[in-house]
């Protein structure tokens, strides 16, 4: 419980003369909390981009099986024949994975730092004034989204937890059928919906927050920052949640 006075009593002097260790630029930047926040913000922007495009791509579902499956084929054939099929997609996936890894590492180290910054918690109840559920639950919504993404991959990419089709095999390219079969199980649909609401909450604080972290602050657009965050979060959640609902309602796959 005890918090210990940092130094013995005595005069303070020469506090700003220590020579700094020189490190490569990026490592140097990443070594500070503000630097890690840039990384959070920049990877966040990348991941928001992915989430938005992923949602838009999946809207093909409403155009029917052929369009959906064709879209999947198109992604594989990106920039074909400049690059062999699948290469560009894998490069994109590699980028995504790196961003996810950096986002998580930065988040983890900042959380550690923050725990160290207040080793003894307040012993009475805090009365927060403006910190909202979204801002205070980032690490929980973030972890939920991560777990969901893993499930999502196991379900629709590798088929490990998907039900097997009539032919007895999980065929990755039958995207439309795979989605429909997955969402027809209501607990899966429910998990999917809940995870997307978590994602929305995460985005609501994350999008606003990245403006601050990057130092993008101007009276000309400050009033829009909250609205942009709410807008992006809403679009992603509404789009994504509509898929299981449509499947369960028989609009898609029926």
């Amino acid at each position: 419980m005890a918090q210990v006075l940092e130094s013995q009593r005595g005069p303070v002097t020469g506090t700003a003369v220590a020579k700094k260790k020189r490190r490569p630029f990026l490592l140097d930047l990443y070594s500070t909390a503000v630097g890690k926040k840039y990384v959070m913000a920049l990877t966040g922007i990348g991941l928001i981009g992915f989430v938005v495009f992923h949602m838009i791509g999946n809207l093909k579902m409403y155009l029917g099986q052929a369009d959906m499956d064709h879209y999947a084929e198109f992604l594989k054939a990106l920039l074909y024949p400049i690059a062999p099929k699948g290469v560009v997609l894998w490069l994109l996936r590699g980028g995504l994975l790196t961003m996810v890894a950096l986002h998580i590492h930065a988040a983890y180290s900042l959380t550690q730092l923050n725990h160290k910054a207040r080793p003894v918690k307040y012993q009475s109840e805090r009365d927060y004034q403006v910190a909202n559920f979204a801002s205070r639950s980032m690490r929980y919504t973030g972890v939920t989204v991560l777990l969901f993404v893993i499930w999502h991959l196991l379900d629709l990419t590798w088929g490990v937890v998907n039900t097997v089709g009539a032919d007895g095999e999980f065929i990755k390219a039958d995207v439309y059928d795979n989605v429909v079969r997955s969402f027809e199980r209501w607990p899966v649909a429910l998990f999917y919906i809940l995870a997307n609401i978590m994602l929305g909450i995460h985005l609501f604080h994350g999008v606003w927050s990245l403006f601050q972290s990057m130092g993008w602050n101007s009276p000309r657009f400050n009033e829009w920052r909250r609205s942009i965050a709410a807008g992006i979060a809403t679009i992603v959640v509404v789009g994504n949640v509509s898929f299981p609902v449509a499947v369960l309602a028989g609009i898609v796959g029926g």
Partner: peptide, 9 residues
């Protein structure tokens, strides 16, 4: 100190 996560408190 800890890091800013833009709570606004």
């Amino acid at each position: 100190f800890g890091s800013c996560t833009n709570h606004g408190e």
